[in-house]
Nucleic acid binder design. Sequence first.
RNA 1: GGAGAGGUGGCCGAGUGGCUUAAGGCGGCGGUUUGCUAAACCGUUGUACGGCCAAAAGCUGUACCCAGGGUUCGAAUCCCUGCCUCUCCGCCA
Length: 425
Amino acid sequence: MLDLSFVRENLEQVRQMLRDRGLPDQLADFEALDRERRRLLTEAESRKAVRNKVSDEIAALKKQGRDASALIQEMKQAGEKIKEMDEQAKNYDNQLRAALRLIPNIPHRSVPIGRASADNQEVRRWGEPRKFDFEPKAHWDLGPALGILDFDRAAKISGARFAVYSGVGAELERALANFMLDLHTREHGYTEILPPFIVNSSSLVGTGQLPKFAQDLFKLENSDFWLIPTAEVPVTNLYRDEVLEAEKLPIKHCAWTACFRSEAGSYGKDTRGIIRQHQFQKVELVKFSLPETSYEELESLTRDAEAVLRRLNLPYRVVSLCTGDLGFSSAKTYDLEVWLPSSREYKEISSCSNFEAFQARRANLRFRRGKGGKTEFLHTLNGSGLAVGRTWVAIIENYQEKDGSVIIPNTLRPYLHGLEKITPA
RNA sequence: GGAGAGGUGGCCGAGUGGCUUAAGGCGGCGGUUUGCUAAACCGUUGUACGGCCAAAAGCUGUACCCAGGGUUCGAAUCCCUGCCUCUCCGCCA
């Protein structure tokens, strides 16, 4: 959420931002709504000031044992008028807030202007895609052949966009998650969090998924409970409505969770394999930062996520998303894309974003410099470090052999009791 | 699932309709005293949204005692609904 007075004072800049993102102008009523709200507020408040004063007079009269019925009558009418005005003002206020919550974040000036993913800017590449002397297979062929991935039974027990991992397949998923968590906690200084996988709607409003993107989420019936689409939601909301001390910043958390997404509107997209699932696992990195250092923190967070790919020796590139591709809450996002030999392209495996104060305003995440300083909104950042299922895919596809077996990269072997190779069962 | 107790400022805690501008304490900040620290003493203390002002400072208004409604001239206080926490019993991984 943007700051109300910022929008009021910078309407043209906000309009330009909407154009850059390729969105329609949604600010038509904003000015009138804001002006009317303030007019009502001022008048209702001055009427209340009168009422407060007269109520004191009534108390004083009664104390002296004198008659106050005339004043009481008068205030009774004044009260009705105030109530009416309060209702109107609240109505305007709700409309204004609703409008404000639907305005996306302002992109950082370093973000490339563009319409769609084709306009994203490649920042760097790492590693050489391997040259195969045979036709590399896709993971949806390799996995079932190795007996470690089962789509048919997943469809039976759940439905489309689910998978069952078995044997070494399940162990590999667990090994990857453990490796990532160890790397981030032992070497990168993140404190691990194991949060609830179910959150209330306030948390989703805090990080920006609600109210606009309810259709992407799974909601539990007859309750205010939702399945988390990412650990970003519970972890960013950890310090909601709190005031943190500036010396404690940056706070760095990592969290392994399952993630649940309805994938409504993605019919026909990534239908084969486990690239796009209703349920997947992810290790997430979340930072709470001082405003002045948040872009340095974005760079280091991105490097921390990249380290996972480097240790696993998986070729990847880093892409800066353009204004048209940028997420609703984000001011700047780097996508990490890993090389997938079967499709001969780089595929998103992590998304690292600086939200600046956008989420902090919604979730009321504040900090204070020194004792007695003013409270300020902090900056929030997050990125996958990494999507475990997609890393699983990258391992299986990049390390496949001609006979359909898969070599386990050295880094992972300690997490798999020394296993060097996955061969058909 | 049954029975009960609660939710007040950064924290503890008083407060059953107007003498509350939320007592008192702790903590924080400023000061006095002091060789230093500590102690003692004095002062001070939150958030949000408005208005005045070129702006800042400042002054000023309103709201905020879990949330949302209601009663009343007036609500932290009375009534209703919801959420959350705790205790005991039962059940349970």
